[in-house]
Design a protein around this nucleic acid. Sequence first.
DNA 1: TGCTAAACGGAGACACTCTCCGTATTGTTC
DNA 2: GAACAATACGGAGAGTGTCTCCGTTTAGCA
Lengths: 185, 185
Amino acid sequence: MRADARRNRDLIVETAREVFREHGYNASLDLVAKRAGVGAGTLYRHFPSREDLVNAVMQGWVDRVEEATEKVLAFEGPPRELLERWLVTYAELISLHKGGPAKITAAMVQPDSPIAPKCRVLLEATERVCERLHAEGVLREGITAADVNRLVGGVATVADGADQPISEVEPLLLVLADGLVAAPA
Amino acid sequence: MRADARRNRDLIVETAREVFREHGYNASLDLVAKRAGVGAGTLYRHFPSREDLVNAVMQGWVDRVEEATEKVLAFEGPPRELLERWLVTYAELISLHKGGPAKITAAMVQPDSPIAPKCRVLLEATERVCERLHAEGVLREGITAADVNRLVGGVATVADGADQPISEVEPLLLVLADGLVAAPA
DNA sequence: TGCTAAACGGAGACACTCTCCGTATTGTTC
DNA sequence: GAACAATACGGAGAGTGTCTCCGTTTAGCA
């Protein structure tokens, strides 16, 4: 890749991160290009679709996910608390940006989405948590990591749509935890 | 209202119902106008915003909600089953159209949305169910109808985004039921 | 029948996405 | 350091959607 191309690419990603933070993931891409001082063509050559750009912007987020996962998995206390911590962590991670919960939760079940690979790290993290909970017999049988993600994703999506911080819907996450732990009727 | 205006209004609503069913609630409104054989101006005069049109289209849905509510509330069996029935009914009602779950769940917490009044009937229905469950001591303390709606709305939103029918996420609704019923840890 | 308020409709302004292609820059080769 | 591909740039513009404005038409009353 030529040096100027590299420079522009980085500039676009940086600008997009800023614009997305301001206007959400549906912000105008022309605005991104304009603010970055490049032509629309340049933006679209580097990132043929909006998702590709989102994907690039997310790279830092992936690192953050990995870090948060390690932290939660390092927790030594009672498994029930581990679950609660993970639910809150998960919700926070996907809610870092406006529109994030819906986008990420949807991508989780659409393997062809360009951001799917990034979301996989989250799914894998949940899998690790679930494994540990299953091993300790705490998690209800038949519950998969995908189920957990869907449930938390749903709550986070709604909170996001209502412009509520995750802290305000934490009680709902505890309800989920109860449901995930309880034995089938 | 003049007779021709009335006629056009009804025609637009009918056409919109059809188009929304085909393409979801984000379908092009110009397409609605074109298919109804009226000018864009006519459509926008009757329905200044997309939400106004959605609102009009929803009138039949409101009737359906009321009917379903009566049916669930007439159920005489164990309260836990009442809850389960309501969760499934609720999810189905908001999932009748693609994009419905997100739209309705969001409107539920945005009182200024034009479709909010319509969504209120759903909230009130959930309130009636919750009241009965609380009276029987089945529902966990502190849980409000709004909480229940958020939880089910979240699950339904995700299912909708993944093009899954509600029947496929029913197990998740049972998880919710468990969480809503269980005593706090 | 004539008149006026009400309603119509579609051209077009504006916004956004995405492509095409003439122009400019890079970096390699001699 | 000059020449020359190969690579990248950028912005005009096509395509699509939203929504408004205003000249034209129509309903319904007197």
